[in-house]
Every structure is written in structure tokens, then in C-alpha cells.
Design a protein around this nucleic acid. Sequence first.
DNA 1: TTACATAATTTGTAAGGACATACAGAGGGG
DNA 2: CCCCTCTGTATGTCCTTACAAATTATGTAA
Lengths: 242, 242
Amino acid sequence: MPDVSLDRTSPVPLYYQVATRLQQQIEDGSMPVGSRLENEVELADRLGVSRPTMRRAISYLVERGMLIRKRGVGTQVVHPKVRRPVELTSLYDDLLKSGQEPRTEIREIEIRPATDVVAEALGIAFGTEVTWIERLRYAGDEPLAIMHNAVPLDVLPLRREDLERSGLYDLLRSAGHIPRMANQIVGAKNATSAEGKILGESRGAPLLTMTRTAWDAGGKAVEYGSHLYRASRYSFELNLTS
Amino acid sequence: MPDVSLDRTSPVPLYYQVATRLQQQIEDGSMPVGSRLENEVELADRLGVSRPTMRRAISYLVERGMLIRKRGVGTQVVHPKVRRPVELTSLYDDLLKSGQEPRTEIREIEIRPATDVVAEALGIAFGTEVTWIERLRYAGDEPLAIMHNAVPLDVLPLRREDLERSGLYDLLRSAGHIPRMANQIVGAKNATSAEGKILGESRGAPLLTMTRTAWDAGGKAVEYGSHLYRASRYSFELNLTS
DNA sequence: TTACATAATTTGTAAGGACATACAGAGGGG
DNA sequence: CCCCTCTGTATGTCCTTACAAATTATGTAA
């Protein structure tokens, strides 16, 4: 009865199967917060895996913040509130997940040489051609953000139709340039009258600013973005660990 | 000559020594970006460690974003720009690191029952007594942020003198309640005239808002904070991975 | 009863071996 | 000339075993 869900013929790694099993038990409450796990040796024995495999499964959950280990003591389930480290998502994904309906209006899309700011951020030569886009993001009927992005031509040839249907990050992902690392700077400013007009706010309204450079697994810069959010309608939520 | 820096009698783990060695070689340029490492077996052999140990060292650097591995191909050094995941630091630490001189003015410190907002954030019962503080943080002579914090009494008895000398996070750490996980929400607002007066800005000036709950390794909530930053003088920088 | 030494428990580190799997390039057949 | 297959190479997974180190609990002696 213990190892019902373990399948050694499956291509999904054993340690991952074990980790998933544990995670389920934690999430469905059969391993309540604060409870101690059996020790590694017994657990491994009972599940019919080796201790390194067991350890790897546990380590995976420890890194995700679901378990903590103490040498000489044991392994415990921690408070379920904070679980995931910061995720690398786009506004589009965030809106989808929260059940709102994202809509995008392409206000501008053209190929132009990179400005010094963009070139610096992307680590490319000044004047290299990039696709430059300005988009207005709606949640339902409400405008939410003005988004400027630059994408190098050799990363992805952006087309207006694609951008209207899906988020930039989805396009990057399906083109094989999966964003893996990013540097973000978050600040605040007051809306100019032009910005306010576009976003449906008045001049001086508080805006969140965010500039971001994202790289793929190979370390190639795939996107630079400079965005403005209506503070009255949006805020960033971060879960940090370590 | 290969294993000069490896010390098997040292208490610092072997895999970590190996990782540090590799990291140095990457940082000092003797392993340039894009170069491939020797394969794991040879590397392990040359350094006189086992392959699992070698793998663990490499994995450590892969997780930190310095290396990438591809099955069947090898391991490569990636673009050095993005390295560290988000760190859990306080404003005090940030200022220290950037060479500025943090100073703190305690405007208020008292023990009072938790409001519903604070109780909810800390996961404690409404009305439980917490230490509530209001501080003004300077960088040099310039006011930078108004900071409100609540710390449960059983976590740490806060004293005015201690807070004047060091940051809250240092105090938490030395009390053994090391912040391990946190949830932050970052937004923006316009300064009221009272806030502006304190921060040396005019009414309506853009402010960054940040509320945070932090937990220690055991999942116990150790701090709730609600802070206001002058956007003209401060912004958040985040490095994200995965 | 208290203080100190000792033992048991549990995770941390390390080695060595075996097989699986994905990728890239070489070679052969159409 | 192009496409397919085969093969070599490197990482991915998994096992068994052993010892080290930290913490807690136990037991003994003053």
C-alpha cells in the first residue's frame, strides 16, 4: 500500500515521483504543519527506494520551502503560507491566473535601432536593430498598463497578429527562448497628462514603474521591457526565500 | 597542481570547496563565458573526488545560474550578468552595501494589541500584543523611508537602544529568528501632506509602498512591516531565476 | 538534585558502480 | 545531394555502503 503511486517504468524520475507524493500528502493535510516526517532511512525503506533518492526528493521540497531539515533532529512540514520562490511571469499570465480577462492593444510596432539604454540593457551593440513595441494592457475594460518592449531580431520576429492573441512571454517560450533569469527594477512616479490620458487616470496619479531584462537558459538576452502600471489597480506580489 | 586548494581535513564540505574553486575560475576569467567544462568524470578524476561530489558542486553553480548543463553535450559557462536569485535583505543592509550611511530615527515604539491587519498578516490572534514601531530611515542626511513594523513579543523584546544602533533584521538574526521566507507586496501612492513633510517631499510626491510578512525557518511569523519609500530616492531591484 | 559524560538518533557528506537517455556528428543508402 | 541510422559521448538517474557531525535523550556520579 505504500508504493502504489510509484512507477519504475515511467520516464518521470523516481525522486520526482516521491517528491510529488510527499507534496500531495502535505497539501491534502495528511501531513499537517509542524509534523515530523519519518527519518530518511525508514522512509526510503518503506517506499522501496534508496536513501539518496529519498534525500533528493526531500531536498527538492526543502528548496521549495515546504520542508525544513535539521541535522540530528529530523524533517518537518513548515507553515504552508510561503511556498514558492518568486516566479518569472508576465502580467498576461498573472491576469489569466487571477481569473481576469487580459486584452492587449498594440499601439505601435516597428523595427528600429536600439537606443543606448536598450542596447546597454540587452548587452548588444548600440544601433543593433530590435523590434520595438508599445502595448496597452487591459483587464476587462479597464486599462492597466502601458508596456514598452524591445526584442532582438534574432530572438524572435514579432508579428502584430501574434501579439494580439497572446502575451509576449508565451511567444518567447514557444520560440524556444524561455526566459530563465531576469533583472527587474521597480519604482514609482506620477503620471504625466499624456500617460494619464491613456490609462484613464488624471495627471499626477501614482504609477508603478518596472524595467526588466530577461535572459534565456543560454544567457542570451531575449527581452527588455519598460512598463507603467496604474498603482490604483495593480501591485507586485513577491514570495522570497533564503 | 590541480587540487592545491582542496582540503579534506577542513570542515567545509568537499563539494563546496570544488564549487568555490570553479566559481573563482569563472570569475577571474580563466573559464570564459561560453567555454565548455571537461566532462564530469574527467573533472572528478583530475580533482581527485568522486563523480557524485563533482556533480553536486556543478549542480550548485547551475542552480545559481553560472553554468548550464545539457545531456549529451556538456556543461558551459553562461553569461555572467545574472547570477543571484532574490535576496532577503532589509533596507539597512542594502544601504550599507551600497556604501551609504544608514541612520535610524525611532519616532515611536510601544507595545500594543495587534490590529486585524497585523494579526492577519502574522497569523496570530486579533488583539495579541506586539511591539509596534515607527521609524524614519535616513541615507546620509536625506530621509528615505517611513517604516512601520510589528514584532510579536515572544519573538523578540525590542528596545529603543538596539534599534538605534542596528537594523531590525540584524536584531532578529542575532535573536535566532532568522528571516527565511517573506511575502512582499509592492505598490505606489501619492504622499499625503503629513507624509511629505516627514520625508521632505511635497504633497502628491510619488511614494513606493511595501508591505511584508517574514517567517523564520520554522515557519513562525517574525515580522510584519508596512513601509513608504521616496520614489525619487529609492527603487527595488530584483534578480529572478527560473 | 544537579552536572557531566555517554549513547542513540538523525541528517550531512562521500565513494564507487551501473545503466538509461539525449544530443551531435559520421557514415551509408536512396 | 539529401535523409536516415548508427555510434560515441556526456549528462541523468539510481543503487549500496560507509562514516561524520549535530542534537536529544539517557545514565552515572558527585
